[in-house]
Computed example of a mutant assay.
Amino acid sequence: MENELLQKVEEYLTHAGLSPTRFGRIVVHDPRFVFDLRAGRRPRRKVYGKVTAYLVAHGA
């Protein structure tokens, strides 16, 4: 589940040309979010839902 989310986020960052820090700030108000995901962070359901909803809304 987490790996799938990280993969989708990474693809979106590449496609959108967005930095990991900016993405984290925009979506979950946490500039370290993507870096923490890369390090193995397991987001809670609410955060997972926010990120997934953002990606869907922005065509990822």
Score class of each variant (00 low, 15 high):
E2Q: 10
E2G: 15
E4C: 08
L5V: 10
L5C: 10
L6E: 07
Q7E: 15
K8G: 00
K8A: 12
V9N: 02
V9R: 04
V9E: 05
E10Q: 13
E10H: 04
E10W: 10
E10K: 10
E11L: 13
E11K: 10
E11W: 05
Y12M: 11
Y12L: 12
L13G: 06
L13V: 12
L13I: 09
T14Y: 08
T14F: 08
T14Q: 12
T14E: 15
H15N: 07
H15Y: 14
H15I: 13
A16D: 15
G17C: 04
G17D: 10
G17Y: 03
L18W: 09
L18N: 10
S19M: 09
S19H: 11
P20Q: 05
P20M: 02
R22K: 13
R22Y: 07
G24L: 03
I26D: 07
I26S: 00
V27M: 00
V27W: 03
V27N: 01
V27T: 05
V27S: 03
H29M: 08
H29F: 08
H29Q: 13
D30E: 12
D30S: 10
D30H: 07
P31W: 05
P31H: 13
R32K: 11
R32E: 12
R32H: 14
R32P: 00
F33D: 13
V34T: 07
V34W: 05
V34C: 08
V34E: 04
F35D: 12
F35M: 08
F35Q: 11
D36A: 10
L37R: 05
L37W: 07
L37C: 10
L37Q: 11
R38Q: 13
A39K: 14
G40E: 03
G40V: 06
G40Q: 02
G40W: 05
R41L: 15
R41G: 01
R42E: 02
R42L: 07
R42G: 02
R42P: 00
P43W: 04
R44H: 07
R44T: 04
R44E: 05
R44P: 01
R45W: 00
R45P: 07
R45K: 12
R45H: 09
K46S: 04
K46G: 00
K46P: 00
K46L: 01
V47P: 00
V47I: 11
V47E: 04
V47K: 05
Y48R: 12
G49Q: 14
G49D: 14
K50D: 04
K50A: 10
V51A: 03
A53I: 06
A53D: 15
Y54P: 01
Y54H: 11
L55K: 13
L55G: 09
V56L: 15
V56I: 15
G59S: 14
G59W: 12
G59F: 12
G59I: 06
A60R: 15
